[in-house]
Design a protein around this nucleic acid. Structure first.
Lengths: 208, 208
DNA sequence: CGCGAACGAACGATCGTTCGTATGTTTGGG
DNA sequence: CCCAAACATACGAACGATCGTTCGTTCGCG
């Protein structure tokens, strides 16, 4: 009845599927307000829809979170696998890993925010799977550091600790860095690489 | 009635006030499950109390969050002020700032977790005040970097960006580092300082 | 004609919070 | 020194709001 107009104008309008649009709105809300503080009715409202209609596209609220978190996680680990298979010096693979991580990070900052901060609201068994993927990715960076230490390119240290710290640093940089174009992004990657490799001390300063 | 026994055993028992105990439980819950996902009934349950009784100690749920967040924030900025007033070379003040920040960080990891992740659930005007305190603290670190650059101790760069990155790194390290005793903590401080000053590259490696 | 997608109504659960009340403790005046 | 009034703190009941979700239905499109 009263929905005739909406159905006529909206149900056919979006060339990009409504499902994908809703996922995008959910990403924005989960990022800005947090998963627990976002209601399905609010998501429905910004989607231009009523709450029950959401369930024609997603079977539950958690399904939305699941798709966002695992979408990012899969992207990260597949990138890691690609780089690990490259025939490059270890420090170049590190530089490449930083650059690609940053590229993914800034390709969808909101999804990354959800990926980083809201994954804990997943329930089992997804939660275990997610943690496992995360661990794989950390191990990839740890492996780079370990190899570099072995070859004398890096100082000795705890490779897993270093890997986690580097990821922490890059992930957090999403909040404190303006959206870069592709050139600025490559530059940001070099900044990170340089900071990580040589620190902030002036080159004339003697290491301890 | 049925509360005779409880009142006799508990109301007089705690030398540490029940109010402080509740704040501690709230810190643990807000840290582990998030502010929005923690209910007053659950907090009451772990406090050994019924939900309405919480309101004899705190006037609202947000009051709890407020006390936790501003308790940490005040500790951080007062420490910063103390260090800024010291008559030390800038790189030593940086080392000291790192050490003191880590000390505070590990003095109450759960409160820090809330401070870092849950502050956005504060409502105005507390939210503005909180952000302002946070900004002061970031500016303190930025000032150290700026001064160091000016004196030629540090490489050139964006001081505010560097300050935020360093804070990010240390705050995140709470999750990925085992609880250190006071000796291990000083050591962790040196690790951070060294990583930040000289990076991971082997000393024989040439900077770009 | 059937199917995907929208709707309004409504479910039971849980949310933060308020209220009136009971009870133990503290305290001050006779 | 004792008793009563005031206070602090606990309780059960319950409020209105909102939560995620289900249901039966409608309706346009292929």
């Amino acid at each position: 009845m009263k929905s005739d107009l909406l159905a006529a104008t909206q149900a056919t309008a979006p060339p990009s599927s409504r499902r994908a649009l809703i996922a995008g709105f959910a990403t924005e809300l989960f990022h800005r307000k947090g998963y627990a503080a976002t209601s399905m009715r609010e998501l429905a409202s910004v989607s231009g829809i009523e709450a029950p209609s959401l369930y024609n596209h997603f079977s539950s609220k958690e399904t939305l979170l699941h798709e966002i978190c695992f979408g990012m996680a899969d992207a990260f680990v597949s990138t890691a696998r690609r780089i690990a298979a490259m025939d490059l010096p270890v420090e170049d693979r590190l530089a490449r890993a930083i650059e690609e991580h940053l590229r993914l990070l800034f390709s969808d900052r909101e999804a990354v925010g959800v990926f980083v901060n809201e994954w804990r609201h997943l329930s089992e068994p997804s939660l275990q799977t997610f943690k496992s993927l995360r661990s794989d990715y950390e191990q990839f960076f740890a492996g780079l550091f370990q190899e570099g230490m072995h070859k004398g390119v890096f100082r000795q240290g705890d490779p897993l600790w270093l890997g986690r710290q580097l990821l922490l640093l890059m992930n957090g940089s999403v909040h404190s860095t303006a959206r870069p174009d592709s050139e600025a992004l490559a530059d940001l990657g070099r900044r990170f690489y340089s900071l990580w490799m040589h620190g902030v001390a002036s080159p004339t300063t003697q290491p301890d």
